[in-house]
Write a protein that binds this DNA or RNA. Structure first.
Length: 194
DNA sequence: ATGATGATTAACT
DNA sequence: GTTAATCATCATG
């Protein structure tokens, strides 16, 4: 399991890249555990106009100012959650958004939480976006401000190494569009968009 | 108290 | 390609 030490050892963009290939684990209970490989991430920096924390500390951005390795989960468009890992020392305000994952364990449960197997035609639709992966991995506000070391955490087990990383601009933002802070595993079919 | 906004998604045409 | 769904948060008055 990755510890606080790992999350605080790199700059936020470096961490975003290093999280690729790692395994996100949610121990949801005996026989209900969920695992998925991280295949797409984005970095949000303190002086970056697209970052929620760039306008300072508020009720919403408070978790981003907590210690590295803390979860920042928020509601977007009134219906989806986005999951981030705080990536800078206390008081700075940076995080890595987990944008897409590849399901490894607990697929049946993931289908259920995504609306049923009938509705999800392709397995990619389970987790190929930030809102989708939160539904599938059952991540919601319960984990906001929680350190990633108990029920929800990231493991450094890598199933495959030697993949190629693509670095490009981020998706779905209106400011900071020119910054190349998105990272994904080239050729992986769970990436939200090539 | 009110109004604008959004690190999205699914269901359309 | 377009658009509706849906609401917590935040700036403004």
């Amino acid at each position: 399991m990755l510890k606080q030490k790992f999350y605080s050892s790199y700059s936020t963009p470096e961490l975003a890249e290093k999280l690729l290939g790692k395994t996100l684990v949610h121990e949801a209970g005996e026989g209900k555990n969920l695992k998925a490989r991280i295949v797409e991430t984005e970095a949000y920096l303190y002086d970056d106009p697209a970052c929620h924390a760039s306008n300072g500390r508020t009720k919403r951005t408070e978790p981003m100012f907590m210690e590295a390795g803390t979860a920042y989960v928020y509601l977007i468009y009134g219906m989806y959650h986005c999951f981030n890992v705080v990536s800078a020392p206390q008081g700075v305000g940076e995080a890595v958004l987990i944008r897409a994952v590849e399901p490894l364990m607990g697929l049946e449960s993931m289908y259920d939480h995504r609306g049923g197997k009938q509705k999800i035609k392709k397995v990619e639709d389970l987790t190929n976006g930030p809102g989708k992966l939160c539904q599938a991995m059952q991540i919601d506000e319960r984990f906001n401000k929680v350190i990633l070391d108990d029920k929800l955490y990231i493991s450094d087990t890598e199933i495959e190494s030697g993949f190629e990383v693509v670095n490009c601009t981020r998706i779905g933002i209106s400011r900071g569009k020119d910054l190349k802070l998105r990272y994904y595993i080239k050729g992986n079919k769970f990436v939200s968009r090539a």
